[in-house]
Nucleic acid binder design. Sequence first.
DNA 1: GAAAATTTACCGACCGGTCGTTAGGTAAAG
DNA 2: CTTTACCTAACGACCGGTCGGTAAATTTTC
Lengths: 192, 192
Amino acid sequence: MADMKETIKSVSIDLFFKKGYFATSISDIAKGSGIQKASIYYHYASKEDLLFHILKSTMDDLTTCLKKSLEAVEGIEQRMRAAVQSHVRFHLERQKENFIANSELRGITAEHYRTIVKKRDAYEVIFQDLIRVGAEEGIFADVDVKILSYAILTLCTAGATWYKSNGRLTVAQIADIYENFIISGLKQGSLS
Amino acid sequence: MADMKETIKSVSIDLFFKKGYFATSISDIAKGSGIQKASIYYHYASKEDLLFHILKSTMDDLTTCLKKSLEAVEGIEQRMRAAVQSHVRFHLERQKENFIANSELRGITAEHYRTIVKKRDAYEVIFQDLIRVGAEEGIFADVDVKILSYAILTLCTAGATWYKSNGRLTVAQIADIYENFIISGLKQGSLS
DNA sequence: GAAAATTTACCGACCGGTCGTTAGGTAAAG
DNA sequence: CTTTACCTAACGACCGGTCGGTAAATTTTC
């Protein structure tokens, strides 16, 4: 058996995804992990600590994944395409964690909240810079950078709410559709 | 003072939006409404019943709003533009209810869940028909209808998660940005 | 149109159950 | 003999929900 700390985390991700953080009890997690609920507290300080661990590692991996995807890719359009691909793929492949990261932020303390939001903001800035530079170079249309970045990110993020891993389309196919949709939107065609 | 049933509903919307359904207690709602918690049960059968009322009326109003917006609008592109405008405006103007409708579906019973999902599906079909016909007419690119409808809807819906009513941009400005972004995306670089 | 009956809209007190968390102990491993 | 990784048992707080009751408003009856 894998080490218990990871098992607890994995079971928690499943349950938080299925029922939500507040609707999931420590007893549920213990039962799913095959131990007594008091034993959870040997590995995690509190229920909130457990949630924070999930959110934090998800955000860290998300950013790492994006930076790796952008390495050695040149040209704003290609970089944006790579960024979208990375974002979509990560959200679909690690659907549960990302869903939690986007819906259970209210479950953590104010201090932990700030930590997570800071990581999220840093991630968003990478996209905003791409949009801004793309607009400056005349590749993308000159529209509000913040709104567009929110649009792009939430669009892909939302995939984690409806995606089904055994569904009609593969992750790669969805990523391609989103990539083209977003690039077209960024170029804003002719502008009327 | 307005009638108490509406006050309770309104207070609940505020609290469910701010803290979430499961993190909000009947006592919280009672306190916010200025009555005792037992009195809540004179107006609503249960906490779940209260949530269901909010979800149901939101979905009904959303659909009514869309249908009214499409009346007498002709041409697929113009109809899609009108649909996006309606969708975005409704979600930003009634932000809290829509946020709840998109995040607290796990709080209702299986039967009530089916009722809401049925309403949501009917709403989505309106968009899917627009995309399909648009593709048939050669106005929109020929890409997966379902995925694109999800993309369009979740994109606007997500606005309800970050929009701030006293923010930099007005609802009308955001709606215009989204409208152009989506139409460009639907045309998929046919102009490039 | 006054008296009686009913309904409306609330209250305070309380219920069984579950919550997250802790204290204290134990058996095995290093 | 200390540390690791768990256990049983229990804690107080709070949960959604119910109870019997009541003052005021409304409707019905004579």
